[in-house]
Write a protein that binds this DNA or RNA. Structure first.
Length: 320
DNA sequence: AAAGCGCGCAACCGCCTCCCA
DNA sequence: ATGGGAGGCGGTTGCGCGCTT
């Protein structure tokens, strides 16, 4: 036996709502509040299914809804949350006040998916699409590329499995130049300039690329051991930069006393935005392992390999 | 001007989850 | 513990509108 329908649809109206129906529903909800959706249509004088009334109210008539396209910031939030939560639209929507799950779902399917694909990122996995050209063998002169992204570790284990799917954020940065040449719409997706890239791991932070010349790894400006000692994150998850900060030239160094790192602004300190941070290292937090907001940041420093990725090779290679 | 086409979005469908008796 | 009802949720559909030919 099949499932019972949510209501008897005989004699019920379907399709787009009229202004009169909207008015009736709004008046009823504002007068009586939200209760027992099944009873709402009858009490409000509507020939609609209760579910239809609920949907109309939640997705369209609610007074606290924002209308219009998602802002750039909201879009970034959606992408980031989707990377963490998948297609759990209601969970994503709960992080975006005034936006509904339906709205975000629609926006994802019609806009964001296309943008990510255009960027060479799989909108499902948030990893680079497999159609990317095979990486050529890296050479020493490539190290002068402005797109080198470094993460640190003293570990020298091979990185084969980590290089197979470079982090999409890093990949995007490195493909910046190529995208411009490929008629990429630059104003659609905010880009992070190479000199603004910060180098860090969970606990330790390296100087920005702008301070690193082609021989940066041996520069006196940069000393890994000093970094290890001084750039220790004391209060994780407390102060992530806004997008503006992240993209601004002013935010191209790290203050060891006021640790700031991350991709998006975070108005909710308890959120697990550290995921972004870790993604920049090596997708370490792809697992569902829960991260407590009060977790002490003391990873094994040998866990992560120091990596180098050039714009041409797309490969991480060991620097040390 | 009109037909064709593609896109965006509101709305629907049906399964899932929660709550209560 | 269990079954049923109601709401919640994600996938899908289809209509309307604007653009192109």
């Amino acid at each position: 036996m099949g499932r019972q329908p949510c209501c008897d649809k005989v004699g019920l109206k379907q399709g787009p709502w009229t202004a009169d129906e909207d008015k009736k529903l709004i008046n009823f909800i504002l007068t009586n509040g939200q209760c027992c959706w099944r009873a709402v249509p009858k009490l409000a004088g509507l020939l609609r299914c209760g579910k239809s009334c609920r949907l109309r109210w939640i997705n369209y008539l609610r007074p606290d809804l924002k209308r219009g396209l998602l802002s750039e910031y909201e879009e970034k939030m959606v992408i980031d949350l989707h990377a963490q939560l998948g297609n759990r639209w209601s969970k994503i929507a709960s992080n975006l006040p005034g936006r509904t799950d339906n709205e975000i779902k629609n926006h994802w399917n019609t806009h964001i998916k296309k943008k990510l694909k255009k960027m060479g990122i799989d909108p499902v996995t948030h990893k680079p699409l497999p159609t990317l050209p095979p990486p050529p063998v890296p050479s020493a002169d490539k190290q002068s590329s402005p797109y080198r992204v470094l993460a640190q570790s003293v570990d020298k284990e091979p990185l084969a499995e980590k290089t197979e799917f470079p982090n999409p954020v890093i990949t995007k940065l490195a493909k910046d130049e190529q995208k411009q040449a490929d008629d990429f719409c630059m104003d659609e997706v905010p880009l992070i300039e190479p000199h603004e890239i910060l180098l860090f791991t969970e606990r330790n932070i390296l100087p920005p690329l702008s301070s690193l010349s082609s021989s940066a790894s041996t520069s006196s400006n940069f000393d890994v051991s000093t970094c290890n000692q001084n750039f220790v994150r004391k209060e994780p998850y407390q102060s992530f930069p806004s997008v503006d900060q992240w993209c601004s030239n002013a935010f191209n160094y790290v203050d060891c006393n006021n640790f700031d790192a991350g991709l998006w602004n975070n108005d909710s300190p308890n959120d697990k935005f550290i995921t972004n941070l870790d993604m920049l290292v090596n997708d370490q937090f792809e697992s569902d392992t829960p991260i407590e907001s009060d977790t002490t940041f003391a990873p094994d420093f040998t866990n992560y390999s120091r990596m180098l990725m050039s714009d041409d090779t797309w490969k991480f290679e060991q620097l040390l």
